[in-house]
């Protein structure tokens, strides 16, 4: 991407959505973390069992 040509309005728009995008990425992180660490289904628990124990997530 050639950032030298970005016009003021475009640059401002990207700057103003920065926090929104960071929030979205963090939310995705939370969803993945909860699936690996806390999903109560037996299949998810058994597949991630050794990880849950190793990282000291409450298990069983």
């Amino acid at each position: 991407m050639n950032t030298n040509n970005i016009e003021t309005s475009h640059g401002a728009a990207i700057g103003s959505t920065k926090n929104l995008q960071l929030l979205a990425a963090a939310a995705l992180g939370m969803v993945i973390l909860f699936a690996v660490a806390f999903a109560p289904m037996d299949m998810a628990h058994n597949a991630a069992h050794d990880t849950r124990h190793s990282v000291a997530f409450p298990c069983h």
Binding site: A26, G29, I32, L33, V36, A47, T51, V55
Partner: peptide, 17 residues
């Protein structure tokens, strides 16, 4: 696989912060 997903989640949170 679970370690990868967990590291991905942790890194997403850390990078955002």
């Amino acid at each position: 696989l679970a370690n990868f997903l967990m590291s991905l989640a942790f890194s997403l949170l850390l990078a955002c912060a």
